[in-house]
């Protein structure tokens, strides 16, 4: 088997280690399926975006909801620090979206230019980790829903991705809608074609390989789509 990939049997082991860890840290990952297993997690995150066309009264409601729900759902006990640094390390409040022209301006300008147009939108992120038999690696599938149950469109999703990822990734090869292999419904997929390579570089120590596989992989790819990993994961695995 190629370095960096894992067999389905090993994926199952890695997944159960990961669930154990998630339970211990008070995170909410859950195991789904019986013969073909996958992992799921739902979390609420506020995106600031001026692309979304929310009617005014709705936007006001969302602003209130933000403080009530997000705080509780995204707080991990004893895990103030995050694995990654810079933008992705911030709490799940993401300022961006459609402000591309403003990004090139100075920091000061970004604030004055974008704030009046931005609407905070509470979104539910539905993350699924599914094993790909073709690529022999885990793959991150996800959907983002606004409060009225509508899917966040690709344009909004792409513009909410932290800018340094957007600069280094190709939009059309990174994110595509795919049929969820177990549910058959449309889900966005972070394309797995570089995962094997990534994991070859990331994992050299065979002894703890399976224990660390999921944490290592997810903390690398998750921040692209607002899934940040508490530091406690890497110190506990």
């Amino acid at each position: 088997m190629a370095a960096g990939s894992i067999s389905y049997e090993d994926f199952k082991k890695a997944a159960s280690y990961f669930i154990e860890l998630s339970d211990r840290l008070g995170d909410s990952w859950q195991l789904q399926g019986t013969t073909d297993i996958y992992l799921i997690k739902k979390t609420k995150t506020t995106l600031f975006t001026n692309r979304l066309t929310q009617p005014e009264p709705e936007a006001q409601k969302l602003r209130l909801a933000e403080t009530e729900t997000v705080e509780t759902e995204n707080t991990f006990p004893g895990s103030e620090q995050r694995l990654s640094t810079d933008e992705t390390a911030q709490p799940e409040v993401v300022t961006l979206a459609g402000a591309e022209s403003a990004e090139n301006e100075s920091d000061e300008d970004v604030h004055t230019l974008s704030v009046p147009h931005e609407t905070p939108v509470v979104c539910t992120f539905d993350y699924h980790i599914v094993y790909s038999h073709s690529y022999m690696v885990p793959v991150l599938y996800f959907n983002v829903y606004t409060q009225d149950g509508a899917l966040l469109p690709l344009d909004d999703l792409w513009s909410s991705i932290p800018v340094h990822y957007r600069q280094s990734l190709d939009r059309w090869t990174t994110l595509t809608q795919q049929e969820h292999p177990h549910l058959g419904r449309p889900f966005f997929q972070l394309h797995p074609c570089h995962t094997q390579q990534l994991m070859t570089k990331a994992l050299t120590d065979c002894y703890t390989r399976l224990r660390r596989y999921m944490v290592c992989w997810l903390s690398s790819v998750g921040p692209v789509v607002h899934l940040s990993m508490p530091l406690a994961y890497s110190t506990s695995c």
């Binding site: 073709s134 690529y135 899917l151 059309w172 595509t176 809608q177 419904r185 394309h191 074609c193």
Partner: peptide
Amino acid sequence: PEDELFHCSSKEVVESYFMSMVKEADCL
């Protein structure tokens, strides 16, 4: 019906899906 169909705002969406299939096939 967005719980059943993929959105398709441009031909690039089709290209992106098509190429992801070609890549998976070559991986196999």
